[in-house]
Design a protein around this nucleic acid. Sequence first.
DNA 1: TGTACATCAGTGAACGCGCGTTCACTGATGTAC
DNA 2: TGTACATCAGTGAACGCGCGTTCACTGATGTAC
Lengths: 215, 215
Amino acid sequence: MPSAKKDGPYHHGQLRDALLDAALRLARERGLQGVTLREVARTAGVSHAAPYHHFADKAELVTALAVAGFERLAAVLRAAVAAAPADDLARLHAAGVAYVGFAQREPAAFRIMFRPELRQTETGSFSTDIDAAGRRAYQVLRDEIARGQLAGLVRPDHLDALALTAWSTMHGLATLLIDGAPGWTGSDGGASSDRTDVAARVAALVIEGLRVRAR
Amino acid sequence: MPSAKKDGPYHHGQLRDALLDAALRLARERGLQGVTLREVARTAGVSHAAPYHHFADKAELVTALAVAGFERLAAVLRAAVAAAPADDLARLHAAGVAYVGFAQREPAAFRIMFRPELRQTETGSFSTDIDAAGRRAYQVLRDEIARGQLAGLVRPDHLDALALTAWSTMHGLATLLIDGAPGWTGSDGGASSDRTDVAARVAALVIEGLRVRAR
DNA sequence: TGTACATCAGTGAACGCGCGTTCACTGATGTAC
DNA sequence: TGTACATCAGTGAACGCGCGTTCACTGATGTAC
């Protein structure tokens, strides 16, 4: 037990970040309904009123968490694309696999990012911040498909229809894998290596559908 | 104001069903966090302790809601398949479009069905009932793909990999459409007819990927 | 056809709980002179 | 280098709230004889 935590200074210094960390940890360990403002403060070692010096209310804290999640996702996708060879549609495939990998590595963040009640304000509109952060992640996928079209590998259909198809597939797979798909039992009964394989197979199949017919 | 409701008999008679109806209505109108046992009872016009004569606890009520949802989904998919022509892969396409249509018509039920915290018991295992009901819905999709393989239209890959790809795509599209996809703005800016079109286009594209290459 | 009685399906008060938020406060920090 | 003072970032008590669940109860129903 670190006494530094008990005897810490009156001013925390990094409380905003510490609260976000604590909230994410709670989401991971106890699920989304375990993320309460009071418990977040407790976890960060601070009184339950302290967060109000950094966030207007609970919604603002959770929104910040979602924005940070989308930024990490975009970074993961960009890294995957950059690491893959430029030939054929390997980069698009890598982005798809990375999307599912992110969801599997950070299921709590992934759920927060797409939970509608966390994105809608009381008036029913959407948080601009989350929308912008989401756009930056979507853009990575979209750009790779556009690149594929220029290279003559992807059919010249409407770009957003193609991108939405690819996104839907990987998004659906990610949610089914992390939330459990009722009624679906993996072919191999859940071998541990199965999951990354499954993302690669699914990504390959959906890319087949986007590909131009005549090679 | 129907006096029949005020002067109703002491015994309700259909309380179990009335509670499920009330819960679904609340989910529709106020979101999932608006579904509390007390409010459900209030909506059904009954005291807050009455539900305990029909459900062991809140989780049991919500589980029943999820099971009913999967049963309706399976029925919708079967109907769509039955109504479509048997040629080519029209039936598979119809099932895909119907899946998204169900989610759009019943977003509240759809969310309940796939909410993991509603399916997991305290011990971490899954509700057998929900799993069985989910399997019946999945089976419709799976059967159509198997049929496509027999007809030589779908590639002879592992059946569950193909079915998971199709399911993932339509499931992902459904969730992105009903929960809002951060950063995605539909090409047409959200024309009302766009949504059913988009499901048809996406379904067609993913089916392309499942199709055998050499015709 | 009546009556006794078990069972079923409601009621309403009460329990303990943790939540989000507000408020007056206090200790620490930094800046002007 | 010191001192006054504004500002910042914490504290802890308190607010009102609605929740899930339990309990002793009571009214209604159905069955045996």
